[in-house]
Design a protein around this nucleic acid. Structure first.
Length: 474
RNA sequence: GGUGCGGUAGCCAAGUGGUAAGGCCGAGCUCUGCAAAAGCUCUAUUCGGCGGUUCGAUUCCGCCCCGCACCUCCA
């Protein structure tokens, strides 16, 4: 079956376009709104990036690894990045470089593939300025009294098509401090005139007829998408919160500038919640990947936990769900090991693998929890001997599925073999004594020593000819 | 006020117009001296509530209750 994704524009599942395999210039083009690099991304941000990573892997599996172009930007100039630079009294580039590096480390930990291009807003100032100039020439944008440039929503009749928001229904907020510069409260900034007290050293020459300053937020995605992927792309994705105003504004800018469809398909993933509400620093429910890793959680378990709910449904993340993910990962590894063990292999007769239905669940709107469930069910059936052992086709399909989920066999093995804390010498000594007692079949002494080990918080796991020590779970 | 998403077992979470996947936790069993690991079995007469359509609804429609989110620079 073809890949179908829910489309925010038509509000229905739509088949994605398959690039022409015969045309080497035809790619599936995919733009995913990335993070703002002023602080560590939290796991809510990473839910979106992980979902998009699964999508990207699925596209490459279906269309071929060289037929997909995946772009994810870095927002490295905006109110928050500038604010952070000002707060720390450091150059903007220092701040964004630092957090970009942290972001990349977190991405690697979560086994996210790097996008094919990762443009930054500051790297595409010229393209943004050009675009704004075109919009001004076309009468879709105007210069305000302070030298800023605003997009004129009235010039784009299709405005609100994505979010279904009508201008008159907008709640009037007081966050629009510069409303007096605009023709209409709904108009949004394409270019923001330099404000010495706020912007510090951050400023570029503006579009013709405008003041020096910096780009507004929305224009960067339009400009970078156009520059790298072209006027019309196949898919644009991001978190649900970006649907309005960000994506609505991108459509308006791009379509007015380019005179053609901006993106054929729009996909939005839902929010990750923590204890029932969205994450925010003020609520103190702000998990980062590095914090969780520092607490001893495996990054792959974080990835699993993020994929354990349907991407278009809010998912409640708790430490408990992370523990569940860790246990599930162990179980998954056992299943994978059985699949890969030649001794269970059964001759295939060329019929489609039973696992293709699991792949179909992923093709159908990225149903990751459904696919995971089906995978466990099959693992269970195979261990019970139902339907016979896996065929070569089954094993190949399993590897494809794991590859799409980013839970490859090697990753699973590494995660589950995560180094445990090394035992102190006295614990090691106790363990050695107990092992000796056991080998001597002095079970009373062995049991007493096990109790001693338990008392100091360690558990001894006997294998046939060896043992290992693990800290007791509380 | 506008818009959107959702309410399925102790927790998490799929799903379908034909009678409830899966994961976690828990219990029992098997296997191991013990312990752990692993495996097996069990755990929703029921899908927020009330009506309606239907031979049949958790699944479609209506109303109500509850939760979450967005509404101009939050993934």
């Amino acid at each position: 079956m073809a890949i179908r994704l829910f489309d925010s524009l038509t509000r229905s599942p739509q088949e994605l376009r398959r690039p022409d395999p015969a045309n080497p210039q035809d790619f599936f083009t995919f733009y995913n709104c990335g993070p703002t690099v002023y602080a560590p991304a939290h796991i809510g941000n990473f839910r979106t990036f992980t979902v998009n990573d699964v999508l990207r892997r699925l596209l490459e599996l279906e269309y071929g690894p060289d037929k997909v172009k995946h772009v994810r930007n870095l927002t490295d100039v905006d109110d928050r990045t500038i604010g952070q630079a000002k707060k720390e009294q450091r150059p903007l580039a220092d701040i964004t470089r630092h957090w970009t590096q942290i972001f990349h480390e977190d991405c690697r930990a979560l086994n996210l593939l790097p996008p094919h291009a990762e443009p930054t807003a500051t790297g595409y100032i010229k393209e943004q300025v050009n675009m704004i100039e075109v919009l001004m020439q076309k009468g879709c944008a105007y210069r305000a009294a302070d030298g800023s440039v605003y997009f004129k929503i009235a010039s784009f009749p299709g405005y609100g098509g994505l979010s279904r928001i009508k201008e008159r229904e907008l709640k009037v907020t007081n966050t629009v401090a510069d409303a007096d510069h605009k023709d209409s409260v709904s108009d949004f900034a394409l270019w923001k005139a330099y404000k010495p007290e706020e912007d510090g050293l951050v400023s570029w020459a503006g579009p013709d007829g405008a003041a020096a300053g910096r780009p507004g937020w929305h224009i960067e995605c339009s400009a970078m998408s156009k520059a790298i992927l072209g006027d019309t792309i196949d898919l644009h994705s991001g978190g649900i919160d970006l649907l309005f105003p960000h994506h609505e504004n991108e459509i308006a800018q791009s379509q007015c500038c380019n005179g053609t469809t901006f993106s054929r398909h729009w996909y939005h993933s839902e929010h990750l919640l923590v204890n029932g509400t969205t994450m925010s620093k003020s609520k103190g429910n702000y998990y980062t990947v590095r914090d969780l890793i520092a607490q001893g959680h495996s990054p792959l378990a974080i990835r699993y936990a993020l994929l354990a709910g349907h991407p278009r449904k809010q998912l409640n993340f708790t430490l408990e769900s992370l523990h569940a993910a860790e246990s599930a990962l162990k179980k998954l590894q056992v299943i994978v090991t059985v699949f890969h063990d030649p001794k269970y292999r059964v001759a295939g007769n060329g019929t489609p693998s039973r696992l293709t239905e699991v792949l179909d669940l992923l093709r159908d709107d990225l149903n990751t929890p459904g696919a995971l469930g089906a995978l466990f069910k099959l693992g269970h059936e195979i261990s019970c001997g139902i339907g016979g052992g896996p065929t070569n086709a089954d094993v190949a399909t399993l590897d494809q599925i794991l590859g799409v989920l980013g839970l490859e066999a090697t990753q699973l093995a590494a995660a589950n073999a995560a180094p445990k804390a090394d035992a102190p010498d006295e614990v090691k000594a106790l363990a050695a004594k107990r092992w000796a007692a056991k080998v001597a079949k002095d079970f009373a002494a062995a049991d007493a020593l096990r109790k001693e080990l338990t008392a100091v918080g360690w558990s001894m796991l006997d294998a046939k000819d060896s043992y290992k020590l693990e800290p007791l779970k509380k």
